[in-house]
Amino acid sequence: MQRIAVVTGASRGAGKGIAIALGEAGMTVYVTARSLADADSPYGGTAVETANLVTKAGGTGIAVTVDHADDGAVKALFERIRHEHGRLDVLVNNAASLVTITDPGGFWEKPLKAVDLITVGLRSHYVASYYAAPLLIAGGRGLIVNTGHYGAVCYYHGPAYGAQKAGADKMAADMAKELRPHNVAAVSIWMGGLDTERARAYFASLPPEARPTAKRESPRFTGRVIAALYGSDQRMTLSGRALIGAELGAFLGVADIDGSRPISHRYAMGGPPELHPSLTS
């Protein structure tokens, strides 16, 4: 039986790589994004392009234009999936608005639009999960993943980014508690430095001597980890936790696309806090 997945915010970056990796695992992947054309972003990428790459990788890619600030559009997406499949197996919440957060200066000196990260990010994760949950339960075995980061526990890109990442971790923990009786897991997976279009453009703008030389994770690595976690008998044991992707990949025996093993940044940037026992039982 072909598994059904949704990856939000997948026109480029982490979402694109995750969607392609789930395609490699043979899944049907609904790819959501606002971008209709490459010109919509300085970094290029569209939902259609990603969906085509999912299909090329061995899955079935389905592009859906969704603004995740529009609850009605999100509801319509999951109603479509209910009509076409009657169930869902994997939801990856990755949609976010990253405008202005990397600009220099204090949060009070940046446009207020930076707080959109909490709307198209934290709130949109909740809304997508809200509409996905009945379909995940209907499938009898499900997984919700929030894409996370060490910024949940260390300073990184400022308060809006930190609040979004920390909130997404706790949201996954609480959703896991309520979904546990239905055999549906929820986790947050912390990604390391990714080799994305945005990152490459930023590093290219730096003087050669200032460009970092450390290897970066392929965005597809996280998708491979998600596919392995979905199929693992440890899925429900790990449910509710924020997990460092590099560590989870090592535990599940997952390598990056070049065969390397990404490293954990736990000791440089911090690790996920321990959950209260009420959240793990």
Rank of each mutant, 00 (worst) to 15 (best):
S260A: 15
G23F: 05
L243C: 08
A172C: 13
S97W: 00
L122G: 03
L243P: 06
A199K: 14
V29G: 02
G58H: 06
A163M: 12
H276D: 14
Y230R: 15
E217V: 12
I20A: 00
I244P: 06
G140D: 15
G151Y: 00
T28A: 08
G245N: 12
G105R: 07
K113F: 10
P104M: 04
V66T: 15
R82Q: 10
Y155I: 03
K113P: 00
D103C: 01
A227S: 08
G193T: 15
Y131Q: 03
A5D: 14
V187C: 01
V29S: 01
V127A: 06
A132F: 07
A57D: 03
D256L: 11
A33N: 02
R180E: 11
L143S: 11
L248W: 05
E79C: 10
D233V: 01
K170T: 10
G86L: 04
E217K: 04
V74S: 04
G271L: 13
A114F: 02
S218K: 01
E247G: 15
G142W: 11
R235H: 08
G86E: 09
R141A: 13
I144C: 06
S260K: 12
A14Q: 03
F251T: 06
L36R: 03
L248N: 06
T28Y: 03
A25H: 05
L22R: 08
T28N: 04
R216N: 12
R80V: 00
A19S: 00
T280F: 03
T46M: 03
G106L: 14
L22D: 05
K165S: 05
A63R: 04
I144F: 10
M191G: 11
T222N: 02
G140A: 15
R82S: 11
A176R: 01
P262E: 05
V184R: 11
L229M: 12
A51K: 01
R3L: 15
L238T: 06
G158Q: 05
G193I: 08
T28H: 10
Y150T: 04
D256Y: 02
L91W: 09
E24P: 07
S129F: 10
P207T: 05
A114T: 07
A268G: 09
P212N: 11
Y130L: 14
D38K: 02
H68E: 15
P212V: 11
K16F: 02
V54Q: 03
L252H: 02
D70A: 12
L143W: 15
T8I: 01
V184S: 08
V31Y: 05
F251P: 00
G271P: 12
A114M: 08
A128C: 13
G193H: 15
G245Q: 04
G105N: 01
F251G: 00
M171K: 02
W190P: 05
G271A: 15
T55K: 02
Q164S: 13
S205P: 06
D169Q: 14
A10C: 10
T50A: 07
L252P: 09
V127T: 11
A69C: 13
L194I: 10
G151M: 00
P42F: 07
V225N: 05
A138W: 07
D67L: 08
V92Q: 00
A39M: 14
R82D: 14
M236F: 04
I118N: 14
V145W: 04
V64D: 09
P159I: 09
R261N: 12
I62C: 03
A152D: 04
A246M: 12
V92E: 00
H83D: 13
G158F: 07
P207I: 10
I189Y: 09
G105W: 04
N52M: 09
D40V: 02
